[in-house]
Amino acid sequence: MSEVLRCENLVKRYGNQLNALNGINLSLESGKIVGLLGPNGSGKTTLIKIINGLLTPTLGKVLIDGHEPGVETKKLVAYLPDNSYLNSWMTIQQIVDYFADFYADFRPDLALSMLERLDIRPNMRLKTLSKGNKEKVCLILVMSRNAKLYVLDEPIAGVDPAARDYVISTIINNYNPDATVLISTHLISDIEEILDRVLFLKSGNIVLDQSVDEIREEHGKSVDELFREVFRW
């Protein structure tokens, strides 16, 4: 098992305000599904954006498979942002071609066959799809890459329970055992069964970093129940 992601004393400050990230130390190994859990404003998306090179840290550093975020790491990281960046006038085929142009590890046949199973055809335009289907298209594109690190920002926000099951089985079915999946969410009970490990983020600090079965053993409660306890106000 190798280390896929490493954060060392990572700090992010926006202007003169409080630190969005307050010295994060973290090491993720390959082959794990990790939940990044925290209430709104705890720093989840900031951390994810730094991992993807969309923000630069104020202090400290991030290493992905030994590289700082940049051109090299874009080849290694498959990122599902919390809002879609695809043009709505594009057809499914165009979007698939677009992804194939960008990422050498993208498998267009796999993406098209997964879309086909949802009755989403190549000639359909993105704007004609329902909100839930748009989100599934984005997830399918990301999971069709053969990446080292998958970073999914709120993949289950705003989907119905059936769609949620679809999202979960798509993640389980498509990540390869050498890769790591980092999933951010505040909907813990929906996703906790598929996690190996959780990170609780609170006001820019990691307040818990533990395997989920250890949590259940130690506390005799589900991750969701523990979360509610830690973040009670």
Binding site: S169, E193, D196, D213
Partner: peptide, 14 residues
């Protein structure tokens, strides 16, 4: 392992 993981809705490592 993967089929059981999907059927039970749990992590394949588990």
């Amino acid at each position: 392992v993967r089929e059981v993981a999907v059927a039970a809705g749990v992590n394949p490592n588990t």
